[in-house]
């Protein structure tokens, strides 16, 4: 087993467990950042260089900034650890362990470790761009439309109700387009 795989998998599993065990959502988010950078390292180890860069820019950059921003905006409290919560965690952990131990041997059996002569494919920008802009041009354009639609939908969902003067937030006279969150406590 290669050393880089051992180190990366230890990092990934530890940070993933951290995401679900930390009670403070900010700590979870920081663990998730470590996890996403670790996934980028896995992509680099698998010679998918373009995806490694995109992973850092899109996930660890854009999406995590959005998540941390919303966490701080909404002022999320630390979750209480109750007895039923611990029981839930232990039970679902046992079920998850069973799933891994049942499916895992099939995976090892399905793709045994082999030595290969030819160099593996390279996920360089050039190779990926060639496939993306020829065979997958229509899905690529569709993805563009999807992101556009999601942006408009997010703006619609998050905007305050502007036309209703009886809306409690607006009648308070404080609403100047910003979201009222956490500021009133």
């Amino acid at each position: 087993m290669p050393l880089v795989f051992v180190i990366l998998s230890a990092l990934l599993i530890a940070s993933a467990v951290g995401v679900i065990l930390f009670r403070n959502p900010i700590h979870s988010a920081l663990c998730l950042v470590v996890n996403l950078v670790g996934v980028a390292c896995v992509f680099a180890a698998l010679e998918a260089h373009f995806l490694a860069v995109v992973q850092v820019i899109v996930y660890a950059g854009a999406i995590m900034v959005l998540v941390v921003f919303v966490l701080m905006l909404l002022n999320s409290k630390t979750e209480e650890r109750t007895l039923s919560g611990v029981i839930q965690l232990v039970l679902s952990g046992i079920i998850g362990g069973c799933l891994v131990s049942v499916v895992g041997p099939f995976i090892i059996e399905q793709w045994p470790i082999v030595a290969r002569e030819e160099p593996p494919i390279s996920g360089s920008v050039e190779a990926l761009g060639k496939v993306l802009y020829t065979d997958y041009i229509f899905p690529f354009e569709t993805a563009g439309f999807l992101v556009m639609a999601a942006l408009v939908a997010a703006a619609m969902l998050a905007k305050t109700k502007g036309g209703d003067p009886n809306h409690p937030r607006i009648s308070e006279g404080k609403n100047d387009g910003t979201i009222q969150a956490g500021g009133e406590q």
Binding site: M1, P2, F5, S9, L12, I13, A16, V17, V19, I20, V42, L46, L89, S92, G93, I95, G96, G97, L99, V100, V103, G104, I107, I108, Q110, W111, P112, I113, V114, A115, R116, E117, P119, P120
Partner: peptide, 24 residues
């Protein structure tokens, strides 16, 4: 000579997916 360790990576992916499901 390159060795193909893809099974290990798929196994890692299985473990991470399970952790995510449990957390969800």
């Amino acid at each position: 000579m390159n060795y193909d360790y893809s099974a290990y990576y798929v196994l890692l992916s299985l473990v991470l997916f399970t952790i995510g499901t449990v957390g969800f």
